[in-house]
Design a protein around this nucleic acid. Structure first.
Lengths: 183, 183
DNA sequence: GTCTATAGGGCGATAGAC
DNA sequence: GTCTATCGCCCTATAGAC
């Protein structure tokens, strides 16, 4: 790993730029400059911007899913795993690196990218539904609460960015966890 | 109103295009084509794209706030107003015309646009906090639940777009409203 | 596999006639 | 106030040498 390949450096750079400015506003030229490889290399490994985007977003999804599953699949009691996931520290003002991409119409219009985004959320919803079911809730209620829990995180990011206040995300989580406790 | 001014037609067209593709990907040329006015007119009324964006996003915020306040400020009981707001029919796959813009870094980096977005959410959070306070909750808890309620809507939009399933938004709302009822 | 050079087009913005 | 014409820039992608 002391000598990462040109391909890996391109994906790393693309992930970083996508996280900050999204896919559309990130030009292949910018990825190229940030990665330090030459222009020919980029188009050798990734013939089109689409190919680069699928690889980079796919890598980000894999990383975020792996981290989430560590928390959601620990050996703590179900409720504890849920609260641990909800309260995990997050860079609220940066937004969710995957969720933010749903705002880009060009991303949703790209079959490959859309599938990667969908897989990320379907996977998380599945894990959260399982947790709620473990607490004794019927399937349909567990599924609704899983949607609510994930919406709290994604919506909390939106509120934090809009108000430029990271506390907006933690407030949303507190409000939701408070409701869970009293029910 | 049978003869809308060039300025009004430009703002209308910009609002429509921003709703579909966001601010960044919408070129002044596209607004111009959609509005039917000439190029000189656009740059006469709005010297830069920034000026056009502030006017169009401001108009959208005004319209959405007016509609929201009608529901949130009706003469129904507090809880009913809240549930009415949460369950109002929404075009889930289109996303929130204001919330989606928080994903665009260029929008948040623009002082004028950022202020308009912030004002929208601050206003909604204030109204929702008031409602929760009316139900007898202490101020800090009311504020947290207001954040949670608004995050459910914004996050529900994100889930619906990511999974291409409008039911994801209604499921999140159902999950949240269910928790409110049992607490 | 990687490089430099460049094509072809859309971008935001301006010029200047009417 | 509105029009047409055009500038200079950056975009995605390709060509072709090494």
């Amino acid at each position: 790993m002391s000598t990462p390949t040109a391909r890996d450096r391109l994906i790393d750079a693309a992930q970083d730029l996508f996280a900050v400015q999204g896919v559309g506003p990130t030009s292949p030229r910018a990825v190229l400059a940030a990665s330090g490889v030459g222009q020919g290399s980029l188009y050798h490994h990734f013939p089109t911007k689409h190919d680069l985007a699928v690889a980079a977003v796919g890598a980000t999804v894999d990383q975020l899913l792996a981290r989430a599953m560590t928390t959601l699949g620990s050996d703590s009691p179900a409720i504890q795993r849920l609260v641990d996931y909800l309260e995990r520290p997050r860079d609220a003002l940066a937004g969710c690196r995957v969720g933010r991409l749903t705002a880009e119409q060009a991303v949703l219009d790209d079959d490959g990218l859309r599938d990667v985004l969908a897989a990320y959320f379907v996977r998380l919803l599945g894990a959260l539904t399982t947790i709620f079911r473990e607490t004794g809730l019927p399937d349909d209620v567990a599924r609704d609460r899983a949607h609510a829990a994930l919406a709290i995180i994604q919506g909390g990011y939106v509120l934090a960015r809009a108000t430029q206040d990271p506390e907006a995300l933690t407030a949303a989580v507190r409000g939701f966890v408070g409701l869970l406790s009293t029910s």
